[in-house]
Design a binder for these strands. Structure first.
Length: 131
DNA sequence: GAGATGACGTCCA
DNA sequence: ATGGACGCCATCT
C-alpha cells in the first residue's frame, strides 16, 4: 500500500484509506482487553506492526495519536474505555464529556482511580505487568 | 488552499 | 512532582 498523494476529495472510493486498515488492527487489539483491565495508546501502537512506508521515527511520534483517532471512531462492541494514557489517567476530550463516562465505565468494572485520578498499572494494567 | 488541531509520549527545566 | 515545548501529519475549519 503505497501512500498516494491525497488530493483533497479524490480518494473517496479509490481505496480503503491506510488509516482504516490501521484502525482495524487497533480495534482488534482493544477487543482483547479483558473487563476491569486497562492499557495505553502508546502500548497498543508499539505492539502493532508499523505500516509499510511509515518511518520508525514517524510511527513512534504519531502512532499513539493514531490509536487515539481509532478510539474516536470505534465501531459498536469495542471497549474503547479500557484505553487510557501513559500517565494512568483518562484523557480529557477536547470537546464533550466522554472522559467522564469513560471513568465511570471503568469504575463499574472495578478499576480503581486514586485521588489524583490515576490507575495503578501494576494492578489493572493489561497485559499484566511482569515483575 | 492555508492554518489550527489532536482520546499521545518523551524530554528537559 | 509538574508544567511546558516539541515531534509528526492526516483531518477538519
Amino acid at each position: 500500500m503505497v501512500a498516494r498523494p491525497t488530493k483533497a476529495r479524490e480518494v473517496s472510493f479509490s481505496s480503503l484509506p491506510l488509516r482504516q486498515r490501521f484502525f482495524d488492527r487497533v480495534w482488534e487489539v482493544v477487543r482483547r482487553i479483558p473487563p476491569g483491565r486497562v492499557t495505553t495508546y502508546g502500548r497498543i501502537a508499539s505492539d502493532l506492526r508499523r505500516p509499510k512506508g511509515v518511518t520508525l521515527r514517524h510511527f513512534k511520534a504519531s502512532g499513539p495519536r493514531w490509536v487515539g483517532q481509532a478510539m474516536a471512531h470505534c465501531p459498536p462492541g469495542v471497549p474503547w474505555h479500557r484505553v487510557i494514557n501513559a500517565q494512568g489517567k483518562v484523557s480529557r476530550r477536547a470537546r464533550g464529556d466522554g472522559h467522564r463516562r469513560q471513568q465511570g465505565l471503568l469504575e463499574a468494572e472495578g478499576v480503581v482511580f486514586d485521588a489524583l485520578g490515576r490507575v495503578d498499572f501494576a494492578v489493572f494494567g493489561w497485559p499484566k505487568r511482569q515483575r
